[in-house]
């Protein structure tokens, strides 16, 4: 167990080091950096969605809250001219505020009902953006959102540069993943999983289940809102379709294919599938079919997801060795 933990830590350190060196490795290739940024966004969204899963829920409203963050940040930029540095936090806070308010009724629902209620929330968020043309630009969305600049202490970085934005996305994504890691490894995480295991027992040993659900949901949406702001200022253009149910579903696919039981799962799933997605881009609709096949095969034949592959391989090797002896 400890050896595995050590190995996992090793892999993590290597992965983060690789991510930081990527621009140099790929020779500042703009397309690869774009894929890197997309991966960072997808990881942030999938891990924060997974945080809700640790209590036993999958929220289909997750991309909606990312949308709330994106629109907040975009509107602050286009109407007040504020930069991402401030907007990012306001966006996260606004998403969290909405999440907090909606989660109090939402968390009364369970299992199937939660899936569907969260789905309704996500759709309402999207359609509100689409309906109020005056504020949110309707289905056309909001244009001309600009990346921020840094100009202090003689340091002058413009984040319109792909490399600079890559590092910004990477750092933010790493912070989000690290924060979720800390939450899950702490007693809070143990309580979350205990609610996942048996809500009724958790309640009867004095855990305020509703409070924890609300806090977890709010926290996850805080991260989703932050990701939304980063997304908006990177793409410089947003519309309601970006944040609809499909975005939530893709995150769910990332989690399921990566694995549901540890934080490695969503990170692995989001990374691998985003890369595969990019590689298959020329295949057009066949790419979507491929994803459908992948998710069905994963559920049927690899129910623990990609994260269980090393253990499965080890077990297989051990068995083969045992047979040859």
């Amino acid at each position: 167990m400890t050896e595995n933990t050590k190995m996992a830590t090793g892999v993590w350190v290597a992965a983060v080091a690789f991510a930081f060196l990527l621009p140099v490795i790929c020779g500042y290739d703009k397309y690869i950096l774009h894929v890197g940024i997309t991966i960072a966004f997808n990881i942030a969204l999938a891990t924060s969605m997974w945080l809700i899963w640790t209590l036993g829920f999958i929220s289909f409203a997750h991309a909606g809250f990312m949308g709330i963050g994106a629109y907040t940040s975009a509107l602050l930029f286009t109407s007040l001219g504020w930069s991402l540095w401030i907007n990012m936090w306001i966006a996260a806070a606004v998403a969290a505020l909405f999440a907090f308010v909606i989660s109090i009724p939402l968390m009364r629902t369970r299992a199937v009902y939660f899936f569907m209620a969260s789905w309704a929330v996500g759709e309402v968020i999207k359609r509100v953006f689409a309906y109020y043309r005056g504020i949110f630009g309707g289905w056309d969305g909001i244009f001309n959102i600009r990346p921020p600049k840094i100009d202090i202490f003689g340091l002058d970085i413009n984040f319109t540069s792909r490399v600079a934005y890559y590092y910004l996305a990477l750092v933010c994504c790493a912070l989000i993943v690290f924060a979720i890691h800390r939450i899950i490894r702490s007693r809070t995480g143990a309580i979350y999983w205990s609610i996942h295991e048996s809500e009724i027992l958790a309640q009867h040993v004095g855990i305020n289940v509703l409070k924890h659900k609300v806090i977890a949901f709010t926290t996850a949406c805080f991260f989703a809102g932050m990701t939304g702001a980063l997304y908006a200022h990177y793409h410089t253009y947003i519309n309601p379709k970006t944040f609809d149910i499909w975005q939530s579903e893709f995150s769910l696919v990332h989690i399921i294919v990566g694995g549901l039981s540890t934080l490695n799962g969503p990170v692995l799933g989001a990374t691998v599938l985003t890369i595969v997605d990019e590689l298959l881009r020329p295949a057009g609709w066949y790419r979507v079919i491929f994803f459908g096949v992948v998710i069905i095969l994963t559920v049927l034949f690899l129910p623990g997801g990609l994260e269980t592959v090393p253990a499965r391989v080890r077990a297989l090797v051990a068995r083969l060795r045992g047979r040859s002896d």
Binding site: W193, S194, E197, S198, I200, L201, A202
Partner: peptide
Amino acid sequence: FQSITLFKNF
């Protein structure tokens, strides 16, 4: 509880 209720995977 009458039916055994535990955190089964812990």
